[in-house]
């Protein structure tokens, strides 16, 4: 044991190999391998009669996706849902995270972090079905809104946005909380000292410094919403999102190449989003 340790101490390359071989193997074979296989499959096609996958390169899947108006609508709808979920989560998470990071006592802060994390332990399906029950005709939401002379949204895109916002909220609260904790109180006091009211301090000091955390949170909420197909099945009524197209083509459609091609869309959107964020330069400044 001791001899092995000294040998590793002298041979730095071997030490590095020993440390990294397993994770590298995992990343290359399991992670990138699966992704690569899927991307290659997108350029294959299926035999119209037998449904068997034909291994010959073609762009026909992508042509169908671009040319058929229904897929364009589904893509825009998915983007819209993901963007709205991100916006809703940001609006809810900001004051919550601010209270946790800057106002609450250390004890209350710990309790709140636990409270935020606890729902993550519950099954995703259970939470989605809970919302189905609440949003159902004559459910809790209808009952709550009845005194105001209105009723709940029923199943559909709004129900999907509400449910997804609920599901992904912790992924926005936690980065914002961490980001706010890193902003020293003295900076907020300095801003007030310079004559700035709360709104100005928020706009000129907190928001710019919180930008990386906002980006981190939005990457979670946005990509998770873009990839979701279960919630929309449970509370979305007849609405279809990109991931439903992928799912249906794999299961009922039996068209794996087309599903793989459709999977390019969320990947391209996320790459585009990350490049856009990088372009703003706000990430390097901090």
């Amino acid at each position: 044991m001791r001899a092995a340790s000294s040998w590793l101490h002298r041979h730095t390359t071997a030490r590095l190999l020993a440390l990294l071989s397993l994770p590298v193997l995992w990343v290359v074979v399991a992670y990138l391998g699966a992704l690569g296989a899927m991307l290659v499959a997108a350029f294959w096609t299926t035999n119209d009669f037998t449904g068997a996958v034909e291994h010959r390169l073609t762009l026909s899947n992508f042509r169908t996706l671009v040319e058929q108006p229904v897929y364009r609508r589904v893509a825009l709808r998915s983007l819209g849902v993901a963007a709205l979920v991100t916006a809703v989560d940001t609006l809810i998470a900001l004051p919550m995270a601010y209270y946790m990071a800057k106002v609450a006592s250390p004890r209350a802060r710990r309790l709140l972090v636990v409270a935020i994390l606890t729902p993550l332990w519950a099954s995703y399906l259970v939470k989605a079905y809970a919302w189905r029950v609440m949003l159902a005709n004559g459910g809790v939401v209808d009952w709550l809104l009845q005194p105001f002379g209105t009723h709940g949204p029923g199943f559909g895109l709004i129900a999907t946005i509400i449910t997804l916002s609920y599901l992904w909220l912790p992924f926005m609260v936690l980065p914002l909380f961490a980001g706010l904790e890193r902003i020293p109180d003295a900076l907020l006091e300095a801003s007030a000292d310079q004559g700035a009211r709360a709104a100005r301090t928020f706009r000129s000091i907190v928001l710019p410094l919180l930008f990386p955390a906002l980006v981190a949170g939005s990457i979670f909420t946005f990509s998770l919403s873009l990839g979701d197909y279960i919630t929309v099945k449970i509370v979305g009524g007849t609405s279809q999102l990109v991931s439903n197209v992928i799912y249906d083509n794999i299961t009922t459609g039996g068209n794996l190449p087309f599903a793989a091609a459709a999977a390019f869309f969320p990947i391209l959107v996320m790459v585009g989003y990350l490049v856009g964020v990088r372009r703003t330069g706000a990430l390097e400044e901090l």
Partner: peptide, 20 residues
């Protein structure tokens, strides 16, 4: 009176300069 409405200014211990 709130800090932003007082005619005083402060040099903070760790300066509290806005890093961005």
């Amino acid at each position: 009176v709130a800090p932003f409405a007082r005619e005083v200014n402060t040099v903070f211990q760790d300066y509290a300069l806005f890093p961005h």
